[in-house]
Design a binder for these strands. Sequence first.
DNA 1: AGTAGGATAATCT
DNA 2: GATTATCCTACTG
Length: 205
Amino acid sequence: MTSDLPRLLAGPAPDAARGLLGTLVRANGVTVRLAESEAYLGTGEDPASHAHRGPTPRTTVMFGPPGGLYVYFSYGMHWCANVVCGPEGMASAVLLRAGEVVEGIRLARERRGAAVDRDLARGPARLAQALGLDGTATGTSVLDGQGPVVVVPGEPVEPGQVRSGPRVGVATAADLPWRFWIAGDPFVSAYRRSARAVGSPTVPR
DNA sequence: AGTAGGATAATCT
DNA sequence: GATTATCCTACTG
């Protein structure tokens, strides 16, 4: 169950991604109930993973112990937050994609500027911004209570309510069903697949 | 409601 | 020099 977070994060990324749904991610005065996540595996296992070609200065944290934060800068203006999982030495992580702000909503509104509440953390860069996260959080742990981010169990999600499918926006390995979300949850993001997705028909199905 | 294009910089080839 | 795990705005119907 989600009550044993260290054990969950030490396991395979897809399991961790699913298990993190419904948990509460608290950082810098804002708490988000996670509604959507994606799993990224390691070297040689997942072409869409930053760690696919082995460790680099940016991705060394992905090879570290589970529970570590990997926050990367993307598209020249956005930060996206991942929680490292799997055994130390193997790279894998869970991208925190979307959720509902359940605490500190005023602070989240200030950080996000003009946006309806539904969109405060609906998308990975929005979520990171709502939580006030940037690269300085990289390398801290969500398990030891020392870093800016703490993950605590929330109301459990019915296993039957969890859906999975292709990850959003990835340019390769667009068919692997490593995106997880809570069925019917309005705080799940609704973005399209990468325009550059290869190896798949342009229209799924 | 849905689509399209631009902004903008670290990282890797 | 190409690419990118995105978001926002503006446009069309």
